[in-house]
């Protein structure tokens, strides 16, 4: 009886394994061309921000047309998220080689009370000297955060110092100035390289 019950199990398993989908399928070109980041569709113009750049010029996204802009928000006293994000972006630029000339990282402070242009410039240069910081008054920073849906909150420490919790995604603006994609925090260097190559081609 037991043996006879095995027969239908074998029949079901055989039918299942005969399905062509059971065999590994090679990745298609379309799948390889999908961004690892979250993609916005249809693409709309990236919101403009009015801030001072650490390179001495105003931050104007139109100035970077022809380049892919990686826009992120953080602060120079950040001990956890920002160093990882900035090291990842620096690593991606390094891995891109000559194509990195067409990638501009813009890092906007969420801590205008402490982050002066000089402070941000020094901090960003420790990761990559081409990174440009965005600084401004509290009102200007708030306006920029609102346009990109960035939240931040100040957390006081017992010693009187403070830290800031903030959104940590990276906005990917294409060469035509369209807000194409948003990369959540935590993706590795290779994911950025993958997406940047696609964005640089398009």
């Amino acid at each position: 009886m037991k043996k006879i019950l095995i027969l239908p199990v074998l029949l079901g398993a055989a039918l299942a394994l005969a399905d062509p989908a059971a065999r590994p399928q090679p990745a298609t070109q379309a799948a390889r061309d999908q961004l690892k980041a979250g993609v916005l569709s249809p693409v709309m113009a990236a919101p403009q921000i009015s801030l001072q750049g650490t390179d001495g010029q105003p931050i104007d996204l139109a100035r970077y047309k022809g380049k892919v802009v990686l826009l992120a928000f953080g602060f120079s006293n950040c001990g956890e998220v920002c160093p990882i994000t900035l090291a990842t972006l620096a690593g991606a630029r390094k891995k891109l080689g000559t194509e990195a000339a067409y990638v501009q990282v813009v890092y906007v402070t969420v801590d205008p009370e402490r982050d002066t242009a000089a402070q941000m410039k020094k901090y960003l240069a420790s990761f990559d000297p081409t990174f440009i910081g965005g600084v401004g008054t509290r009102a200007e920073i708030d306006a920029a955060q609102k346009k990109y849906g960035i939240s931040s909150s100040k957390n006081s420490n017992p010693d009187g110092s403070y830290t800031i919790g903030h959104s940590s995604s990276i906005y990917m603006i294409d060469r035509a100035g369209g807000l194409r994609a948003v990369m959540p925090y935590g993706h590795p260097v290779d994911d950025f390289v993958h997406d940047l190559k696609i964005l640089l081609r398009s």
């Binding site: 239908p8 029949l11 079901g12 398993a13 039918l15 299942a16 989908a21």
Partner: peptide
């Protein structure tokens, strides 16, 4: 048929 369906459900992609 029941065993065949269960087996299929367990093995089919």
């Amino acid at each position: 048929p029941l065993l065949a369906v269960v087996a299929w459900a367990g093995f089919a992609p």
